[in-house]
């Protein structure tokens, strides 16, 4: 979509135009829904969060500044909504004070292997991570949150954040390698 059309859509949404809102929804919803599913695994939760995120997007769209893309802005809102959701049900989320797994050694082959995987396969692997580790890892590795920020957002200690991310890396590496080996054996 070219820039002019996008800006027109945004202007329409700012005026409360239902058509513009629907266009923006159709434009962003698939990507944002994928983000929600990656974080939350459960499709119903993901749909609920997506719905809430879009309500925020449409009601706060006046605050959108045009110096960034609308997609990045909407993604940020969605991530915040996911974090809110997780924080609300924190009691059921695993944020165990994990034992520091120590220095995680990542194989230099791993990035290459990930490149070879399908995005869907990688998503499935990530979804298999325990929720606490998954959320902390995604926030840190994908969204770029620092451990301090993660600790603050999720109401956990910095140590817990670090150990959860390290735990996630370790598990991910193991699962990705297993997946890769299984694929190799098939070939």
């Amino acid at each position: 979509m070219n820039k002019t059309t996008e800006q027109e859509i945004i202007k329409g949404c700012q005026k409360g135009d239902p058509e513009a809102q629907e266009t923006l929804y159709k434009m962003l919803a698939p990507k944002l829904y994928a983000v929600c599913i990656t974080y939350l695994k459960n499709k119903e939760d993901a749909a609920d969060v997506l719905q809430e995120a879009f309500i925020k997007i449409f009601t706060k769209i006046d605050m959108y500044k045009k110096n960034g893309s609308i997609e990045a802005w909407a993604r940020k809102i969605t991530i915040n909504t996911i974090i809110d959701f997780i924080r609300k049900r924190k009691s059921t989320t695993e944020f165990i004070e994990a034992i520091d797994p120590g220095e995680v050694e990542i194989s230099s082959q791993l990035p290459g292997i990930i490149e070879q995987l399908e995005a869907k396969e990688l998503q499935e692997i990530i979804q298999q991570l325990p929720e606490g580790a998954r959320v902390a890892f995604l926030m840190h590795a994908v969204e770029g949150y620092s451990h301090e920020e993660i600790a603050k957002e999720l109401g956990i200690s910095i140590g817990t954040s670090k150990s959860q991310v390290a735990r996630a890396r370790k598990l991910l590496q193991k699962m990705i390698k297993e997946k890769w080996n299984a694929r190799q054996r098939k070939i």
Partner: peptide
């Protein structure tokens, strides 16, 4: 991982 996840889309 970032690159791969960015490719993901799913119709809600």
């Amino acid at each position: 991982i970032r690159n791969k996840l960015n490719e993901l889309t799913k119709e809600p």
